[in-house]
Amino acid sequence: MKPCIFLDIDGVINPNRKKTTYHFDYSLPNNLAKKLNHPKIADLNVYLVNQVYSCFSKESIDYLKKLIEKYNAQIIITSSWRIVYSLEQLQTMFDIFGLGKYIKATTPLISPRTKAIQEFIDEYNITSYIILDDFDMSNVFDYHFIYVRNYFKEFDYKKADYALFIQQKELSN
C-alpha cells in the first residue's frame, strides 16, 4: 500500500484562530464549481465552502501536496470532520485545492483517535505512514507522529519529509 498521511484538519490545515474574518460569498460554491469544472462543489454547504476556501492555510496545503507528490502518498482523514461529512464530501471539499483524489479513506469512528488510527494501520497492514495532528500522540506513534502547532508549516513539513524518507529507506532494505 502507498504511504499514508493520517490527517487531522483543525489545527493542521485549518489554523487555530479565535477569530477568522473573511468576505463571505454566497456564490462561491457555484463559482468554484464552474471554475474547476466540478459540479459537486456547488452541492456542498455554502458556509463549508467559504470556510474551506478562505480559512484553510494555502501554505499548509502546498506542503501537503509536496509530501503527496514526493512519496506518492495518500491521505486518510482522522479529523472529527469525518463524523459530519461523508468521504465523498471530504474529497469534494479537498478538490477545491486539487487534493480530493488523494483522500482515500477515513479512520473508524471510535475513540480515542489513537485507537482509530492504530486499528486502520493494523487492518490495512500500513507499513509507511505519518500522522499530522495538533493533539500529541508521540507516546503512541513515536517518529511517525508530527506534532503540528496551529498549522502545518515548513518546520513540520521537514519533519514529515524526514520521517517518510527514513521509512522508505527501511522498506527498500
Rank of each mutant, 00 (worst) to 15 (best):
Y162D: 14
W81K: 13
F155L: 15
Q168F: 07
E123V: 15
M93W: 08
K158V: 13
T21Y: 14
M137T: 00
E154A: 09
T20C: 11
M1L: 12
A73D: 03
D136G: 12
S60D: 06
I61M: 07
T20V: 09
N72M: 00
V148R: 03
R149E: 11
F145Q: 13
V140Y: 10
N31V: 00
I103E: 07
V12P: 03
I131H: 05
T114P: 04
D62L: 06
T107K: 10
I110G: 10
F152I: 10
F6L: 07
Q91N: 08
L90N: 10
I130D: 02
E154H: 12
K70A: 00
Q167R: 04
S54N: 15
H23Y: 08
K58F: 04
P39D: 14
E88L: 11
S172K: 08
T127L: 08
S128I: 08
L87D: 05
S57A: 09
M93A: 01
T114C: 14
L48V: 12
E154F: 10
T78R: 00
N31K: 10
L164Y: 01
P3K: 05
Q89S: 15
Y124T: 15
Y53Q: 04
R149H: 07
L44H: 09
A116S: 15
P15F: 09
L67R: 08
S128A: 00
N45K: 14
F94G: 02
I166G: 02
P3R: 00
S79I: 13
L171S: 08
V49G: 13
A33L: 02
Y102M: 01
V12S: 04
N173P: 03
Y143R: 05
A163T: 08
P15I: 09
V140F: 10
Y63Q: 01
K18H: 00
E88A: 13
Y143H: 01
I117Q: 14
D25S: 12
F6I: 06
L109M: 14
F120K: 11
D95P: 01
K2G: 06
L99A: 01
P29E: 05
K66Q: 15
P108K: 14
Y47S: 14
Y53P: 04
I5D: 03
Y162P: 05
K153I: 10
L32T: 01
L64T: 07
P29L: 00
K115V: 11
S54P: 06
D10L: 05
I13N: 07
S79T: 11
F6Y: 15
H38F: 06
R82M: 13
Y53F: 14
N45Q: 15
G100C: 05
I117D: 12
S27M: 07
R149L: 04
I166P: 00
F6R: 02
W81V: 13
R17G: 06
E88F: 00
D161Y: 13
K159G: 14
Y143L: 03
I166T: 03
S138A: 11
I146Q: 05
C4I: 10
P39L: 12
Q168S: 10
C4R: 08
I41Q: 01
I13F: 03
K169G: 01
N16M: 11
K18P: 01
D62W: 04
L171Y: 02
E170V: 02
Q51H: 14
H23A: 12
K159W: 09
C4W: 01
N14Y: 11
V12Y: 08
F145R: 09
N72K: 06
K18L: 11
H23M: 12
L67T: 02
L132F: 04
D156M: 02
Y85S: 06
S138L: 10
K2M: 10
